[in-house]
Each structure stands twice: as C-alpha cells, then as structure tokens.
C-alpha cells in the first residue's frame, strides 16, 4: 500500500475575473517509509496540497488517500494517524514548552511518556527551557518543539510544511538529521521546502511551480533528465560576462550560481566553441570554463522556462 496517493487534484480559488488555480491536475504517490520532498517557491501551491492531504481542505476534483484512507470520506481515520506541522509556527505562544507538549500529547490520546523514545533526542535539546513560554524561544528551538508536538502520538505519516523556512543553515542541517532518524523508525515523511539544495536530501522529490508538478522523481533521476551540456563559466568581470552571454542569440539561458555562471545553449549545440568565442570577444581575464553536472536548481529553472 502506498503511504500517500494523489490523482488529478484540482483546487481553485475564486478571483476577480477567472478562478486562480492553486493546484492544477496534480498526481503522485509516496511509498511507505519514504522522505518525499515537495519543492517550489512561495505561492506554488505547496500549502494547498498539504491541507488537502491533511483533510483540512476539499479539492475541487481528484482523489487522494493517506495511509489507505480517503481524504474526504475517511478523514477522521486520517486525523488519528498523521502528524502535521503547518507552515506558520503553530504552537501556543503563551504556554510553556512542556505545557504545549502535554497538550498535544493529550489531545492525540497519548502521553509524553508513552512515545518519549521517539522524541527523546529532539526533546533533550529543548528540555533545559521546558518552563519557558513558546513565544520566547528562538526560531530553531520553536521548530524543534513543533516537531516534537507533531510526533508525540507516533504518526505513521508526517507532513511538514516548510519546516526550515527562515532557519539558518546549521539548524537546517540538524533538522534534516532528525528526519533521517525518524525515517529509520519507519515514518513516512512528506516535506515542503523552498530551498532547492534540500532536494538532494529527499528520497524522491516533486518540483512544483504555479500549481503544476514539473517533475516527480529521485533527485538523481531529475538531474539525469537534464539532457543538455551545462557549462560553468567565470572570469574577472562577472557582471559584464553575464550581459555578454545573455545577449548572444545562441545562449538558451545563463544564470549566476555563486562565483560562476551556468550556461546552456539552444538546440543540440554543444556550445564549447561558441562559449570560447563569446569570452574571447569580451577580453576577459582569469577565464575558467568547465563542463558540469546540473543540480536540482538548474533543472528547476530549466523546467520553469519550458
């Protein structure tokens, strides 16, 4: 049995003249025990999809199941067995760390002791502050507490909507390490993120943009499908180089990536000769040109432009 399935999910919101599609014919399936990433910018439809799967929102059309239960007819069964951490920080700011945890444990018909093993590692990090109000915690700590609260009833499927947004790189890395440990316990995790670099950490990912899934595959599968030569170029004047490359009609796209530009040429052209020509024309110094493998962000942008 699949942990999550979605078939042709459509969700629209009425707008001024026409309806706005938050989700447009979305279909995918998540296996048991998988970490499944939903990757896309704000407004892509990630939260709508999460709310449909967590039975908080009804889709216009389409069918979805979680743990084998239908999201519309069996919503009560789903609510008994999933953990959900919404995008906004969803704890009671005026309750202490411990009071929050106790509250969520009790309303999910369990106690902190019963599933303590599951949250032990995470909870130990915030335990020194257990009498502090949740509103007084820093971003990283809140996020850990929210995760504890979502886990306390040992859910079979865990939904995390942008758990790492606004969180620094170190805390993000720690957070992902926690997710691996949960995966090892057999929990299926569906996680949304706007950070492309987190895609590589998932077993499989769905890239989403404007309510449509651009691609659903393993991270390697997605980068493997990038079937054009990709060049990394750098020189002394990166701004000038960018303009020169963008101006050339043979260049399909040129995006800055940190210290280098990633360049793709149109059609079937390999582009190496063309690249040398453009760089040569501009009198650049310290030029380095390398053929590189694409990353998820390259693929996402290429898919966005299609």
């Amino acid at each position: 049995m699949k942990a999550i399935t979605a078939e042709n999910i459509v969700k629209s919101y009425p707008a001024k003249k026409t309806a706005v599609y938050a989700l447009n014919n979305v279909s995918f399936a998540v296996d048991q025990g998988e970490i499944f990433g939903l990757i896309g910018p704000d407004g892509a439809g990630k939260t709508s999809l999460f709310r449909i799967l967590t039975t908080l929102l009804l889709a216009d059309t389409g069918k979805a199941t979680v743990d084998g239960f239908d999201v519309i007819n069996d919503y009560q069964n789903i609510r008994n067995r999933i953990g959900y951490m919404p995008g906004r920080f969803s704890l009671y700011q005026d309750l202490s760390v411990q009071e929050n945890l106790e509250f969520f444990a009790t309303i999910f018909n369990t106690s902190i002791q019963e599933n303590y093993a599951l949250i032990k590692e995470i909870y130990e990090q915030i335990e020194p502050f257990k009498t502090r109000r949740a509103g007084q915690l820093s971003g990283g700590m809140k996020q850990k507490l929210a995760l504890c609260c979502a886990l306390i009833h040992k859910p079979s499927v865990l939904f995390l909507d942008e758990p790492t947004t606004g969180v620094d790189a170190v805390s993000r890395k720690e957070f992902w390490e926690m997710l691996y440990r949960l995966k090892a316990q057999g929990i299926t995790i569906m996680v949304a993120t706007p950070y492309m670099d987190e895609a590589g950490r998932c077993d499989r990912v769905a890239l989403i943009q404007k309510g449509k899934l651009l691609s659903v595959d393993t991270p390697n599968g997605i980068t493997g499908a990038f079937n054009k030569p990709l060049w990394s170029v750098s020189a002394n004047n990166m701004f000038g180089l960018m303009n020169d490359l963008k101006k050339d009609p043979a260049v399909e796209s040129c995006f800055p990536f940190g210290q280098v530009h990633h360049v793709v040429f149109k059609g079937r052209e390999n582009g190496r000769a063309k690249l040398d020509e453009i760089v040569g024309r501009g009198n650049y110094n310290q030029v380095t040109i390398k053929a590189i493998k694409p990353n998820i962000e390259d693929c996402f942008m290429a898919l966005m432009r299609e």
């Binding site: 039975t55 908080l56 609510r79 906004r88 920080f89 009671y92």
Partner: peptide, 13 residues
C-alpha cells in the same frame, strides 16, 4: 489566525 486550529482540527478531537 495563529494556525493552531490547523493542528487541532487534524487531531482526533
């Protein structure tokens, strides 16, 4: 507004 309703609705309560 706080978003806590989302979590509570998803609970068996």
């Amino acid at each position: 507004e706080m978003g806590t309703m989302e979590v509570i609705l998803v609970s068996p309560l």
